[in-house]
């Protein structure tokens, strides 16, 4: 598959002023990106995941030509964001914050027609395309097409935002947290559309989100970014295999006195929480679950406890996210 976005060694440093009192201050240097490289192929949804301040929005801004990198370059359909921003702009659809970005006193249709003109669509073509998109995003069904933008709900705003990104039918879509704050039906509709746009229409989509469930179901591939570096990359399944534990053992037991991990003989990543009535839930993340489970049962019985329930949980993408966000996976890639 053709590589639609190629990011090559992006570096970006911000210099901000830290205030001290009324007049004082010092310059603080923040390394937002420290050599980020990746690519996105056509027909693929790639998720960019990371904690706040990891560098997700900076990456999207650079690819969208809204920010210049200090070093490195990014290419959209072969065009450099540094040397040919005009060419890049012809090939991208952009969706940033959901709640803003349109003129409040214009209707959804008028807003789209305004941006269609800005994106160079001739009047007749624009009107037709806007009608198509209002129908695709079901804004006409919701009676929102000819309603003022300032009267829109968040879900309607998100749909209109996606409609604008699709105005020129670009090969590349850059979507920055497109479902943030949306109700479940609107979020689901956006997710379905994003998947369909990539898989049926062959668009390359770079998608940032904090929602792990969403990332798992929408993204074909995930890039985990932390402190300005890509710390892990792969399909959700592949990422789960990257963390040192493969299963979480969950044991519920009635134990006479509150157990502590040391007494259970379980070392490493364990947590114990009381459920009431002398019942405790013990969660242990383990790479060799069978061996650890044997030790755990032995320890619980040794403390005079009764085992009520045992189950094994697969690691989730959230586990992966937390593992790499803590910096535990630094140096994995």
């Amino acid at each position: 598959m053709e590589e639609a976005i190629v990011v090559d060694g992006l570096r970006k440093t911000y210099r901000t002023k830290k205030r001290r009192g009324l007049l004082g201050g010092e310059t603080v240097v923040v390394e937002a990106l420290r050599g980020v490289s990746f690519s996105v192929r056509r027909g693929e949804v790639v998720g960019l995941l990371g904690p706040n301040g990891a560098g997700k929005t900076t990456t999207i801004k650079i690819i969208a030509t809204l920010l210049l990198p200090d070093d490195g370059d990014a290419f959209v359909m072969g065009h450099s964001v540094v040397r040919e921003p005009w060419r890049v702009r012809e090939n991208i659809g952009l969706m940033l914050t959901v709640e803003k970005g349109f003129y409040g006193k214009l209707t959804g249709r008028e807003n789209l027609e305004y941006f269609a003109a800005l994106y160079g669509l001739p009047r007749g073509v624009a009107e037709k395309r806007v009608a198509e998109l209002l129908s695709l995003l079901e804004l006409d069904k919701l009676g929102a097409a000819d309603r003022l933008f300032e009267e829109y709900s968040l879900g309607m705003k998100a749909r209109l935002g996606l409609a604008r990104a699709l105005l020129r039918d670009p090969p590349v879509l850059l979507l920055d947290e497109p479902t943030l704050g949306l109700d479940p039906p609107s979020a689901r509709r956006i997710r379905e559309l994003v998947k369909s746009l990539a898989h049926r229409e062959g668009k390359a989509i770079l998608y940032t989100t904090h929602n792990m469930f969403e990332a798992e179901i929408v993204c074909d591939r995930i890039l985990l970014i932390n402190k300005g570096r890509i710390v892990a990359e792969g399909s959700p399944e592949k990422l789960k295999e990257m963390i040192p534990y493969t299963r979480t053992i969950v044991v519920q037991a009635r134990i006479p006195e509150k157990p502590v991990p040391e007494k259970l003989g379980v070392l490493g990543d364990a947590s114990i929480s009381p459920l009431g009535g002398g019942v405790y839930e013990i969660r242990v993340r383990a790479k060799r679950p069978r061996e650890v489970l044997g030790e755990l049962i032995h320890a619980v019985v040794g403390l005079g406890g009764d085992i009520l329930d045992i189950r094994m949980e697969e690691p989730t993408l959230e586990d992966v996210f937390i593992y790499f966000s803590r910096g535990e996976g630094d140096g994995e890639r």
Binding site: A64, R89, I92, L94, G101, F102, L118, Y119, R164
Partner: peptide, 18 residues
């Protein structure tokens, strides 16, 4: 203020024409 600036800058329209 309206949040439209990024979309205007990221549009291929010439800023001068605009």
């Amino acid at each position: 203020w309206m949040g439209t600036l990024p979309y205007i800058i990221a549009s291929p329209v010439s800023r001068i024409q605009h």
